[in-house]
Nucleic acid binder design. Structure first.
Lengths: 335, 335
DNA sequence: CTGAAAGCGCTTACAG
DNA sequence: CTGAAAGCGCTTACAG
């Protein structure tokens, strides 16, 4: 079978503990011993068994990544979070256990209570997320991506949707726009507790109200051709609006062709601003001025804080709720 | 700390082995004992430690999923494979270790030699895939999604790109088309050994030649606005072509707006056929007659065969190379 | 600088 | 039907 630490010890003529210490560097080893061990390891092709090590150290060096794929959600968005998380984890020495089960609460309980992971990342957290109670009861720490209603005792990371909305409204207001359409995520996103929907919308409406702007708020659609029909209906109903704020990936991806078909030129006939990630904008080549989110930063922060809590809980401090600052990228879709 | 099997045994007044057998059902237990154990388990909240179990059984119940994210590739496509794989694995009792490292060969060696997984799934396999040697040297079995040049000793699953191309050419030929444009994946996909590119293209050209058709072959682009420019240039250069076969997700996703902008009506002015998955077509609402691939079937087959090889190698038989049959979905984009 | 031994939490022959 | 014990492959106090 596989070569074990015992084989290495025998081959190098030392004890297993010495091999182990050589591996970990936790005590000093004479040069000659170290060399013999190194030689034995390479010539035998030894790699320490992860399970045995986990059992001995009670550290799996694995993080659970709990995703939820809402059938209605725009798939491309998910990968933008998963990849940076995986990369950052690896950088810190951790592997990723991908958990996609529909019954996320059950799955969370399973992987934590079986000790399969040292910590857990919850993606796509909603307002009242049923996973949170299970997480709080778990022996391992967790970090959330997405802001829930009750953050008690949890490390939370999210984009600053409120600030993003304000930045966009300010931008349009500064350019002289006085009647603005806001397209939010689809209604069912709100209904299932996707708080980013109302955090953005409410901030936008509030800001608009403060400036005395005429704001028109609509829900977006998640699929073509409904998106096109909906956008057309909205634009028909609001012929005097001069600007469009779109907070919906599916709509923004479809918008160029919808507006082209309608003969609407951007920004001459209509100013358009949005909120999406750099990667997303790039792969769909969205030419819109937008607040750019940074899924990679979000993921990085979440993983780093989680690992801190795992390895040095005393330094991790009190639970944090951290919002990633939005940045406005001007791309000429407004005037 | 966490509750162990010893706690359960003590609570139920039996030995650890009896608890273990009650858990596994590998020997008969008297009703009263079984009840006491069950009571102890629930009242203590016991879950067997996965690492300890793995060490004792040499089974981790984890599959490695090795993905490669080519920066040029269309992100949405990836998730269509990952999700069905994860679901099927869970159905069979396995969890998924997601490995996304750039140095995939190294990562593969790491997770296999450390015994972190019972088997491994390689996604996005290319013609001469450097991971294959490592896989062949590993103690665990593996399954590939994607056809490499040398399938020696490996279970391989892929879509039948050649047959897909033939089906589409046959369809167009049957409708009377005599001059056809084929848009393949981008050149760099070919260059890095993405064999699906030439498997499809070569089969299409060959079939066209057999029918005496005029076939024009081009590489696609991966991003807007280059895609639009390229398509426009191609259509300008081939004004008499009556049909378009598109084998490129990014191009097909962008095509509706490109053709609309050009004033080309489908199918009146141009027949369009493609090759994509149901999900993909749905989320981008592509109204094109197409050969539909089934990433879910692919993933399911790969996982099932892999698990068979893990659990009952004697029944898994000789290595298989299996192509998923394509299906033509007529959607009225041809005439 | 190094070794012998206990222990991590399970499973599974071996006995009865 | 059930238990005592060995073993999976590591790590880490404890000794020297």
């Amino acid at each position: 079978m596989a070569v074990t630490i015992t084989d290495v010890a025998r081959h190098a003529g030392v004890s297993r503990s010495t091999v182990s210490y050589a591996l970990s560097g936790k005590r000093s080893i004479s040069a000659s011993t170290r060399d013999r061990i190194a030689e034995a390891i390479t010539s035998l092709g030894f790699t320490a068994n992860a399970g045995a090590r986990a059992l001995a150290t009670s550290q799996t060096m694995v993080l659970g990544l709990l995703t939820q794929f809402h059938q209605d959600e725009f798939a491309p968005a998910m990968l933008q979070y998963v990849l940076p998380i995986s990369d950052t984890a690896r950088e810190l020495g951790y592997d990723i256990l991908l958990v996609t089960e529909l019954d996320a609460t059950d799955a969370l309980r399973r992987v934590t209570s079986a000790g399969m992971v040292d910590g857990v990342l919850l993606l796509d957290v909603i307002h009242e997320d049923p996973r949170l109670d299970t997480l709080r009861a778990a022996a391992q720490p967790g970090a959330l991506v997405g802001l829930p209603k009750d953050t008690e005792g949890l490390d939370v990371f999210d984009l600053d949707f409120g600030e993003s909305a304000r930045i966009l409204v300010d931008h349009l207001f500064g350019l002289g726009h006085r009647e603005i359409i806001v397209i939010s995520p689809p209604l069912h996103v709100f209904e299932r507790g996707g708080a980013y929907g109302w955090r953005f919308r409410d901030a936008a409406l509030e800001r608009g109200a403060r400036y005395g702007l005429q704001m028109h708020s609509y829900y977006g659609e998640s699929q073509q051709p409904t998106i096109g029909q909906s956008v057309n209906a909205i634009l028909d109903a609001r012929p005097t609006a001069t600007a469009l704020i779109v907070h919906n990936d599916a709509t923004i991806a479809a918008l160029p062709s919808i507006l082209a078909a309608r003969g609407v030129r951007v920004p001459d006939d209509l100013s358009v601003v949005s909120l999406f990630s750099k990667d997303f904008g790039r792969s769909f080549s969205l030419p819109y001025t937008a607040v750019e989110s940074s899924p990679d930063q979000l993921g990085q922060h979440a993983v780093r804080q989680l690992v801190r809590r795992i390895t040095t809980p005393e330094l991790a401090g009190a639970p944090v709720t951290r919002f990633i600052a939005p940045e406005l990228a001007i791309r000429g879709s407004t005037m």
